[in-house]
Design a protein around this nucleic acid. Structure first.
Length: 105
DNA sequence: AGACTGACGCGCC
DNA sequence: AGGCGCGCCAGTC
């Protein structure tokens, strides 16, 4: 790709690279991924990219939740996929971030 | 150009 | 603990 003039092309590459590194049974938040690519304030952009991630290839985007552990709206199989990896959900329908957050630091 | 939108986050209450 | 408001920022109208 010679002339990616759009900032988002690079964002997409960096975000998906990080997503591809998420270990099984771990759940980073959008904000953590944003921080890992040096854009701590762009959590919303991470969500935007992931909402269309299936267009770019096969990535474990089901492992990404928000800071509260809530799964993505409109992504029904996300919970099932996570539970299949051993991620447990709380009564309120959120992932127990204390226990499964990828980067606890 | 200006306003609205959204798979978000954090401080407050 | 859960809900509300405001700040972010690229994309869309």
């Amino acid at each position: 790709m010679a002339g990616e003039t759009r900032l988002t092309d690079r964002l997409i590459y960096e975000i998906l690279s990080v997503v591809g590194e998420i270990p099984e049974g771990r759940v980073p938040s959008y904000g953590q991924i944003a921080a890992l690519i040096g854009r701590a304030r762009n959590a919303r952009l991470v969500g935007r990219v992931l909402s269309r991630a299936e267009l770019y290839g096969d990535y474990p985007c089901h492992r990404v939740v928000n800071h509260a552990g809530r799964t993505a709206p409109g992504f029904i199989e996300q919970r099932m996929l996570l539970e299949k990896e051993g991620v447990a959900f709380r009564e309120n329908g959120c992932v127990d971030m204390k226990q499964f957050q990828w980067i606890t630091d």
